[in-house]
Write a protein that binds this DNA or RNA. Structure first.
Lengths: 208, 208
DNA sequence: GTCTGAATAGAACGTTCGTTCTAGAAGGCG
DNA sequence: CGCCTTCTAGAACGAACGTTCTATTCAGAC
């Protein structure tokens, strides 16, 4: 024995984490904060470990690698996005109502998982194949859902567009862009922003 | 003298650059390509130098630092964006026509400087204060132009919105998002995409 | 009580990073 | 020609990076 205090924390003081989080949970939470603010390349594992005042060994113990940590965050959150969007459509048949429900569900998830969704939007960092592939896969599946719903609208004569794909990108644009500029602690409420976005998607500048 | 081939290239072969670009111009072009694809943090100066098969010393000779190279690209391109947008409005008085001209000008610049504008949109890389400040400054000035024009529309009773700021963000969303997904060499023409975007901004899903 | 495995610390490794330093080659000018 | 500035190469440096390794402590099973 040399010195220091390795091994489990002394039980009396809740050591590494704020609150009652386990080390693993604290790592996920802290990594999420850093990744969503500074991206994958912009965040070092020492940043994360130092913020929690623990050793970097913990990251390798729990997640194997830096990318494993990224994928673990994706796993418990963002990965479910396509399914959650599909679920919002289950009981609805009217095409316009379906799209409205889809957008609302998307905005709701955005509000509750702003940082997680920001992570997959910063795709210009290059992580190794598996990581970037997981990101792209989720984005593709979400895009496919929107295209499918818009195509139904178009065939029903409810919208007139030359290209549903461009339309889908435009809708995703306003939803995803909001992740960049909206501040939950700012002057605007999430409900207010969501209402404006929905209005813009369905009627553009001209309002309702 | 040891070996190798330092000094100016042998005049017969146009050495470092493809085509007739000077070393400085070739560096700007190559750096632009890397920065727009992989961001500031994701691009190393050795990436850039190796792609041109020259030494990293050139970057320090011409630009002083990695960030100086970034700022030089901004200087000769993106920095003029706010002015170019203002110029598009000079002869127009009708508020709706002004906004239309603004959007068209913005899309035109986007088409000719897609990579440059992408650079300032990847703001999640953290470069030192001066660099990130220049980025934010440009984005703020563009936002201010849109807000000013939308406010004029609102006061003229031509649009009904609860918040022109959100509206401005929504318009910037579709314009900037297009930088991410549009591929000039893809199946869609720029004109086609621009027309759809304008239609979406002014009328949303419902089309014209 | 002893053993085993999970959890943690801290040093160390090899690589890559941005940058600096030293020096050589070419061009312009007298 | 000789001189000075510009341009270029390449080695080297210190810091930071992701990762590995070794060692230690605690909790629980027996």
């Amino acid at each position: 024995m040399v010195s220091g205090r390795p091994g489990r924390p002394a039980a009396s003081v809740s050591y590494p984490a704020e609150d009652g989080l386990s080390s693993r949970e604290a790592l996920l939470e802290t990594a999420l904060q850093f990744f969503s603010e500074r991206g994958f390349k912009g965040t070092s594992i020492r940043d994360i470990a130092n913020a929690l005042e623990i050793s970097v060994s913990n990251i390798y113990h729990y997640f194997g690698s830096k990318e494993g940590l990224w994928l673990a965050i994706m796993e418990y959150s963002v990965k479910s996005l396509p399914l959650r969007l599909e679920n919002s459509l289950l009981a609805i048949t009217d095409p316009l109502e379906r799209l409205h429900a889809l957008v609302m569900a998307h905005l709701t998830v955005s509000a509750s998982q702003q940082r997680e969704l920001k992570m997959i939007m910063l795709d210009h960092d290059r992580m190794s194949a598996a990581g970037v592939q997981a990101n792209l896969d989720i984005q593709r599946r979400v895009l496919a859902i929107y295209i499918r719903e818009l195509e139904a609208l178009r065939q029903g004569g409810l919208i007139s567009t030359g290209n549903v794909r461009i339309l889908a990108f435009n809708i995703l644009a306003v939803i995803n862009w909001q992740l960049r500029w909206f501040r939950p602690d700012g002057p605007l409420s999430a409900a207010e922003v969501h209402a404006e976005i929905v209005k813009f998607i369905f009627h553009g500048l001209s309002g309702k």
